[in-house]
Design a protein around this nucleic acid. Structure first.
Length: 698
DNA sequence: ACTTACTCAGAGGCCGTCTC
DNA sequence: GAGACGGCCTCTGAGTAAGT
């Protein structure tokens, strides 16, 4: 049930944020008895002296509105305002509206919520530019509104609110694209309203989650910090749904600022906090600085600290690079809950190809040290997988047998797996696979990977740090194509260009696009998972022509002179994803003979090739030490090593000769068909990169 | 034959500076 | 003053070489 509700909640979150000046009606979560709409005050409204009522609101409630309505502000007067109807069906608040605006000093960027109470009466809530509700004194006559940015509530002295979110509230700073981009919120407003009703005996503050809060750290309102937090405190505890997180409290005394830093991102990730969620932080223990956190979500879902909601006591944290975390699979998996301990993993190329890294925290906590084998259960099948751990490094992997699991369950890059430990004694995991579907970056990836240019270029999958901060330039590309004295690059995209600072650290061979890059990502709408191709079209002035391939089909612009590639440069930003396509081709391979396939990695070229132990155990009898590889009419004798004790097998002596002479390349996928079990003869089919397809199949 | 250590690229965190 | 931005450092993990 809880799972279903959560899923429902995610669905709401994904609703598109409305545009500038959006007019909203009551949300589905709002009781039907209390319809409302909101308006953002733009210059046009100020100049015309009238305010349009949203048509959708009129359709539902317009018949109740006669020629006159009454506007009431909390604790204030009731203002009669005449309505005007224009020919196009619009209805305006007209005579009396200007007076109302002047009286309450309503200005550009203010947000007004009109809650319809029936009988032509609207209760009006006024938010200033910082999205803080202006709390007008009850003896309104001689008072103007409180200064912008002041957010202390008079009703509750211990309450400090900061209600400001890039997601739906106007920022205190002007932005280039207008201040109300995505005032979105029909749903945010509901969350905000719900949160605004929050009451507690403890001091508390409310925060609307901004992108920077989600991505980096949370700013604690300085007023609250000064008043309630002892200066020597450096650690706080956040309680949420029966779990606790230790988070570092960082403060700059001289600036009277405070942030929740180390540990905050874990809290965000593990509680599934999103931009525009409204959180209430209740200080339930002043001595140890413990906050009870309640989250008011966008669709009215409330998750209160230490609530009855079922929340996993295990570790629901995601493991694996966030850049590869597909929003959809990720979100689907986010709803997973269990009484058993579990961990979640986003499939990275190395996981799909090789071995799965187990989160060290999970391993330490739940897996007995002497265990060497784990069993994976998926559907009605079981797989035995070797459990490798390196205690001193705190790392652990699923190795031998894992590849078979991947192959046989059809696991792919960016799928999300949940591993639920249902039997601690025998280490049995029940595995749940959340497919990344078509919304993963794969399609963008596939499109981008086919491109080639006469100019030097590199390709990047957008990671969180790239989107929000800076872009890392492949060191090899930088060394090879960019002159050392260059400090500025130009990014050309469509008809626009951006000047971006080029920062390099020669001693480490690292290079980044820094200042100006955030503007580029913001203004081109670049998002996590999008793929960018950077063509260096001018080496002297470092001009990159950029092509963007969106991860969800939202936009796709190919403005360059790209053509289909035959020799594909590696992607940057995630470890060597290019073999995935060849792997996928090889995955479709069918044969009457038993077979396995591998993607050739650098270490395969120079050293040895592992054979899946399960394959070895099932199909290769006896203790034979030599095998024959057949390809394109030629054959190679290769030494076979198999170690029962470690369940490892690989091809060694003779293998490198095969690699060399069969012209295997890194990223190629090979299918090994066992065409003669007695003499151990493998027929090798090679699937190469783009355009080469299968080079030869005997 | 197998394990462990080392190296390096890159992601992300910390904290100072800048800007509004 | 508040918060965004930027520089640099540390940590992580993949790949590989060396050690036992």
């Amino acid at each position: 049930m809880a799972r279903r509700r959560r899923h429902h909640r995610r669905g709401h979150r994904r609703r598109r944020v409305e545009d500038e000046g959006a007019e909203q009606e009551a949300t589905p979560a709002t009781p039907p008895s209390c319809p409302h709409f909101f308006k953002i005050i733009l210059s046009q409204t100020l100049e015309s002296g009238k305010l349009g009522i949203p048509k959708r609101f009129l359709r539902r409630h317009g018949k109740d509105l006669l020629g006159l309505v009454f506007l009431k502000v909390e604790g204030g007067l009731t203002w009669p305002v005449k309505l005007e109807k224009s020919e196009d069906g619009m209805v305006w608040l007209w005579k009396g509206w200007r007076k109302f605006m002047e009286h309450y000093s309503i200005g550009f960027g203010h947000l007004l919520v009109f809650r319809y109470e029936g009988d032509s009466v609207f209760r009006v809530i006024i938010f200033d530019k910082s999205a803080s509700e202006i709390d007008y004194p009850s003896s309104i006559g001689s008072y103007g509104p409180r200064p912008e940015g002041e957010f202390l509530s008079r009703k509750e002295e211990d309450v400090v609110e900061i209600e400001d979110s890039e997601g739906f509230a106007p920022r205190s700073r002007p932005r280039s694209k207008g201040l109300s981009r995505g005032f979105g919120g029909r749903s945010s407003l509901t969350a905000l309203e719900l949160a605004s009703k929050f009451k507690s005996d403890h001091p508390f503050f409310r925060v609307v989650m901004r992108p920077s809060y989600i991505q980096k750290y949370l700013c604690v309102p300085c007023e609250f910090f000064r008043k309630h937090v002892q200066k020597n405190k450096q650690l706080v505890t956040l309680r949420y749904s029966d779990r606790s997180w230790q988070v570092k409290l960082r403060s700059y005394g001289h600036r009277r600022m405070a942030f929740l830093s180390t540990g905050w991102s874990s809290f965000v990730r593990e509680t599934g906090l999103h931009v525009s969620d409204v959180c209430v932080f209740e200080l339930i223990d002043r001595n140890d600085i413990m906050f009870r956190v309640s989250n008011f979500n966008n669709d009215g879902w409330i998750e209160i600290g230490q609530s009855q909601c079922q929340e996993s006591s295990s570790e629901p944290s995601f493991h694996g690079s966030p850049c590869l975390s597909p929003v959809t699979a990720h979100e689907k998996a986010s709803g997973f809950e269990s009484d058993h301990p579990f961990f979640k993993v986003v499939m990275r190329p190395s996981y799909v190809r090789k071995q799965l890294s187990i989160p060290s925290g999970f391993f330490r906590k739940h897996v007995q040290k002497n265990k060497q084998i784990a069993t994976l259960r998926y559907s009605d099948r079981l797989w035995q997988v070797k459990l490798r751990s390196f205690e001193h490094r705190g790392t652990a992997f699923l190795s031998n047998g894992w590849c078979s699991f991947v192959r046989e369950t059809g696991l792919r890059l960016r799928d999300v797996c949940v591993f639920e430990l249902i039997d601690r004694d025998d280490i049995v995991f029940s595995v749940y696979i959340f497919k990344s579907d078509g919304l993963s970056p794969v399609s963008a990836f596939e499109k981008a990977r086919r491109l080639e240019s006469d100019h030097p270029f590199f390709k990047v999958v957008m990671r969180p740090s790239y989107v929000r901060k800076r872009l890392s330039i492949p060191s090899e590309f930088f060394r090879k194509h960019v002159k050392k004295n260059k400090q500025v690059a130009t990014l050309s995209y469509l008809d626009r260009s951006w000047q971006v600072k080029l920062k390099s650290y020669d001693h480490r061979g690292m290079a980044f696009l820094t200042s100006g890059w955030p503007s580029f990502t913001r203004e081109t709408g670049l998002r996590l998972g999008d793929v960018c191709v950077f063509e260096l079209i001018d080496r002297d002035d470092i001009v990159f022509r950029v092509s963007i391939f969106s991860s969800d089909g939202r936009i796709e612009i190919e403005q360059s002179q790209f053509r289909e590639s035959s020799s594909e440069p590696a992607f940057h930003g995630s470890p060597c994803p290019s073999p995935v396509a060849t792997y996928e081709k090889a995955s479709k391979f069918e044969s009457e003979y038993p077979f396995f396939h591998v993607v050739i990695l650098p270490n395969h070229i120079y050293t040895k090739l592992n054979i899946p132990w399960k394959f070895m155990k099932t199909y290769i009898r006896g203790d034979r030490r030599m095998v024959t590889l057949v390809n394109s009419g030629r054959s190679w004798e290769v030494k076979l090593h198999g170690y029962k004790r470690f369940q490892i097998a690989f091809l060694a002596a003779g293998w490198s000769a095969f690699v060399r002479e069969a012209r295997l390349c890194i990223g190629d996928a090979c299918v090994f068909e066992l065409i003669d079990r007695d003499n151990i003869v493998f027929r090798i089919s090679i699937f190469s990169g783009v355009n080469r397809e299968v080079i030869c199949i005997d």
